[in-house]
């Protein structure tokens, strides 16, 4: 069980709340036309991103798919640079070139969100190759949706990581739908971690993805395993409370199903735990919530007042 100080636990809680408030605000800005393109929200999955990222050591790395806002916040990118990116401003993390799906911060070892399903999987293999090539002690956490397990990239990348004993934690954020197609309608084997067998790879746990500390513990252990031995495949069983992206009519699931999962809201569960086991008061949690709202409002102001890129920026950073 996680041996974390109360301060750390509170920081993790705060992190989850900031993600939730950021996502709600993003939806609002999208509806106002201030954010364009596709917007995939992390609401409901916060425990997975926060638990997994907080388990990373200083030298470890993380890479993810396009549902990347929660990972960006957890790795420590200030919301103002995230919102500025979503609003296409030069102050955004990717200078307005990437948008919601392409957040990254190289200095923080966050190698980005990627919009082609599975496209980042071989990148993770390659990022991890450095550890073996130069005999360095780090692991790469590669988050992916359940949908990405059926694309060729998954097969080739996991197999290559196994052949070369690379330190990758392949974590499937199984939110039960690849867009609108349920896992059992898309995968012959629905217990996705079992795919590990086909690669001679360590089959990791299927962790409760709504329990931030369970995700933290499992990821921590997986990272240690990967550094010592090689790749491991694990699943975080989670659920998104909102559509795949903005404008999803959600015909593939019932409102009752969503409500049922919302009963197990990962932020509320963690909050209750903090109150019950760590002598935190509801008032304290309410303060965090207000602080998060203020932080996001300031971020919107920063992004709104940031400059738009100009024509000449089109040709910057195509080549080094």
């Amino acid at each position: 069980m996680a041996d974390l100080s109360k301060d750390t636990l509170l920081d993790m809680y705060r992190n989850m709340v900031v993600i939730r408030r950021l996502e709600e605000k993003s939806a609002e800005l999208y509806q106002q036309g201030l954010i364009g393109g596709f917007l995939h929200l992390y609401i409901g999955q916060e425990a997975t991103g926060v638990g997994a990222v907080w388990a990373l050591g200083e030298d470890d790395h993380v890479i993810t798919a396009y549902r990347d806002h929660g990972i960006a916040v957890s790795i420590g990118i200030e919301p103002k640079y995230i919102l500025a990116e979503m609003m296409g401003k030069t102050t955004g993390v990717s200078k307005g070139k990437g948008g919601s799906m392409h957040l990254a911060d190289k200095d923080k070892h966050f190698w980005g969100g990627y919009a082609i399903v599975g496209g980042h999987l071989p990148l993770a293999t390659g990022l991890a190759l450095r550890a073996r090539y130069k005999d360095e002690n780090f692991a790469v956490l590669c988050l992916m949706g359940d949908g990405s397990t059926n694309i060729g990239y998954f097969h080739e990348s996991l197999n290559m990581s196994a052949v070369w004993d690379l330190p990758v934690v392949w974590m499937i954020e199984n939110n039960q739908y690849g867009m609108g197609t349920a896992v059992d309608r898309a995968s012959g084997e629905t217990e996705l971690v079992k795919r590990a067998v086909g690669y001679g790879m360590k089959e990791g746990p299927r962790v409760d993805g709504m329990d931030v500390l369970a995700v933290y513990d499992a990821t921590k252990e997986a990272l240690e395993y990967a550094k010592k031995n090689g790749p491991i495949l694990m699943e975080s069983l989670t659920y998104r409370f909102v559509g795949h992206s903005m404008g999803d009519p959600e015909r593939y699931r019932t409102k009752e199903e969503v409500h049922e999962y919302q009963e197990g809201d990962p932020i509320r569960i963690f909050g209750d735990k903090l109150i019950g086991e760590h002598k935190v008061t509801q008032e304290q949690l309410d303060v965090f919530d207000r602080e998060a709202r203020d932080l996001i409002n300031e971020a919107v102001e920063f992004a709104t007042n940031s400059p738009n890129p100009e024509f000449d920026d089109l040709f910057v950073d195509i080549y080094s």
Partner: peptide, 23 residues
């Protein structure tokens, strides 16, 4: 001198990742 499986997507993808990470 690394022999790879017959996996062109991963050959280019992993080489890209390795290049991004300094190799």
């Amino acid at each position: 001198v690394r022999d790879t499986p017959i996996s062109e997507m991963a050959i280019v993808g992993a080489a890209t990742g390795a290049a991004m990470n300094g190799l």
